[in-house]
């Protein structure tokens, strides 16, 4: 599996996804997930296409996108690194890890490193609460992440290796 996970914006691909989902009951969330899964974010152009297909206004679609933390309207870096900041991880030093991650990457939450490699995001609980602090990169979750392990994780991402299971 070496194909890139995301593709660049293409209205034809988006339209195919929309057609697949639009007649499901409560289609909007699964549809937005599918768009973001394909393009890594939900481009402005997609909002209009979705609104037309679902017979809703662009404002309604935008309202839903902006309500949910998971959906993004700007292209992220090559990797999204999510640091858990919930209580169980706090009890094991997550606050230190958060501060370290920000200073080491030189970004705040919701920002992307200058080399466009990493977007840093907060996350509230990954369900790995006995072995924190926890970090998620793509669909992989990492346990016991201290500052040293965070360095190793980031180093691995720098080599631009695609995550292969």
């Amino acid at each position: 599996m070496t194909t890139p996970r995301f593709v660049t914006w293409d209205p034809a691909i988006a339209q195919t996804i929309i057609e697949d989902f639009k007649s499901k009951p409560g289609a909007l969330l699964p549809l937005l997930h599918a768009i973001q899964e394909r393009f890594s974010y939900i481009p402005e152009e997609a909002v209009g296409l979705i609104a037309t297909a679902l017979k809703q206004t662009r404002a309604e679609i935008h309202g839903v996108i902006s309500f949910y933390h998971h959906f993004r309207t700007k292209q992220p870096g090559r990797h999204v690194v999510e640091v858990c900041r919930a209580e169980a991880c706090q009890a094991l030093g997550a606050r230190r890890l958060e501060a370290y991650a920000k200073s080491m990457l030189g970004v705040d939450y919701h920002q992307t490193t200058a080399d466009n490699n990493i977007t840093l995001e907060p996350v509230y609980c990954l369900g790995n609460c006995s072995c924190g602090p926890s970090v998620r990169v793509g669909d992989e979750i990492y346990a016991d992440v201290d500052t040293q392990r965070f360095d190793e994780l980031v180093d691995n991402l720098k080599t631009d290796r695609l995550e292969v299971q």
Binding site: L29, P30, H33, Y68, H69, H70, V123
Partner: peptide, 8 residues
């Protein structure tokens, strides 16, 4: 199965 989107 339907996925949420990060809203507690």
């Amino acid at each position: 199965v339907r996925l949420g989107a990060g809203a507690y």
